[in-house]
Amino acid sequence: MRYPILIEEGSDTTAFGVVVPDLPGCFSAGDSLDEALDGAREAAAAWIDAALDAGMPVPSPTKLEDARRLSGYEGWTVGVVDLDQALFDDSIERVNITLPKRILRRLDDLAAARHQSRGAFIADLTMVTK
């Protein structure tokens, strides 16, 4: 999925700035354009991941023409950041993992103590470690 970005030109004394206007508060900066663009991609992915974790909707990308007309960004260059479609995929996938029986027993005991399935418990663990 491609989101429009707005790029503020850097110089010898200022960093390049990149804003993803469809994702409020999502921006990056870098000493080079490549660094700023890589940061924007990472920031957008983190923004979307956090929104999905919080149960918030992810805004659809606006058209480039609309991004060009945003007030406050006159003179900025318009581009796009390409995000992996898998970022938006919350579908369930069955996985096969291998664990020693003693570890699996501990995992199941911890899940049972929380009245959760093994899968739900593992999913909750990944949310806590962010």
Rank of each mutant, 00 (worst) to 15 (best):
A46I: 06
I103Q: 11
L6K: 00
P21L: 05
A113N: 13
T62S: 15
D109I: 07
A54G: 12
G79S: 11
G30Q: 05
L6Q: 09
I122A: 06
R114V: 01
L52F: 02
G72E: 07
S71L: 13
R94L: 15
T126P: 01
P61M: 08
P21N: 03
P21C: 07
M56Q: 14
D12V: 01
D84K: 01
A50F: 12
A36N: 04
S32T: 10
P59G: 13
L70I: 15
R102A: 10
R102N: 12
Y3L: 08
T77Q: 15
W76G: 12
D31Y: 05
L83P: 14
R41F: 01
R41V: 05
E74W: 12
D53T: 11
I103S: 12
E8M: 08
P21R: 12
V78F: 03
V78Q: 09
L110F: 04
A43C: 11
V95Q: 15
A111F: 05
G72P: 05
A54Q: 06
R105K: 13
G25A: 07
V81I: 09
I5G: 04
D34H: 11
M1R: 13
V95M: 14
P100C: 08
G72N: 04
L107C: 05
C26P: 08
L107M: 08
D90R: 07
S28Y: 02
A67I: 05
D84I: 09
P59Q: 11
T129M: 06
F27R: 04
D38R: 13
V58Q: 13
E74R: 15
I5C: 09
R2V: 02
E35Q: 11
D53P: 05
D84G: 06
T126D: 01
A46W: 10
A54T: 14
P21H: 09
M1E: 09
A67E: 10
K63H: 15
L87N: 07
T129R: 02
V81G: 03
E8Q: 13
G10K: 04
D89R: 15
D109G: 12
A50V: 07
I7S: 01
A43I: 02
V78P: 07
L83Y: 10
A46T: 03
G30V: 03
D124Y: 00
